[in-house]
Simulated assay, not measured.
Amino acid sequence: MSESIRNINFEDEFDFQSSRSSGPGGQHANKTETRVTLRFDVSASAHLSDAQKARIFEKLGNAINSEGELLISSQESRSQHQNKEICIARFYDMIAKALKKPKKRKRTKPTRASRKRRLDEKRQHSEKKARRQKPDF
């Protein structure tokens, strides 16, 4: 599933915004907009099915704003272009993780030894409680 997501070109649906990066940097940081925010409208995407959209809303709800846009921002690099590439890579990783199906749990029986241990612990616990009671005379 994740490989097929990486093959889809979502980039025609991306909307990029740049802004000033926080933190130190002197004159350069005060006048250049190197932070990049990627906006992706999940509900309006033509590349995703309704089931995939629902799963993305469920898994990535914290990164989606009230308008239904997935927001990813990066200010790691001093280059706007590199931050844009980082955002795109994060987007594909997040979508692939959100759409990955969880493994089915295989039910197993407890082993004979584990059943014996559980019953022994129950017996010891019961005896401990019984020793706390007053004796019957």
Rank of each mutant, 00 (worst) to 15 (best):
H28G: 15
Q52K: 08
I5A: 04
D120I: 15
V36E: 06
F40D: 01
E33H: 03
I8C: 01
L119R: 08
K53Q: 02
D12I: 05
S19E: 10
S18F: 15
R78S: 15
R6P: 04
G61V: 07
Q27H: 08
E127Y: 10
R105T: 13
R39G: 03
T32V: 12
S126H: 12
Q17L: 12
K31R: 06
K122P: 03
A98W: 00
G26I: 13
S77V: 13
R132G: 15
K53P: 07
L60T: 00
Q17D: 11
L71C: 00
A63T: 05
F14D: 15
T111E: 11
H125P: 00
K122R: 05
K104F: 06
T111Q: 08
E69F: 11
K104H: 00
P135I: 14
F16H: 04
G61F: 08
N9M: 08
E69S: 14
R55G: 00
F40H: 14
K109V: 10
N83E: 08
R39Q: 12
M1N: 11
E13T: 13
E3A: 05
R107T: 07
V42Q: 05
F137A: 02
P110T: 07
T108K: 06
Q82E: 12
P110M: 10
E121D: 12
R78F: 01
Q75Y: 07
I8Y: 00
R131Y: 14
F10V: 07
Q82A: 07
E67M: 05
E13S: 08
E85P: 01
F91H: 04
D93K: 14
K84D: 01
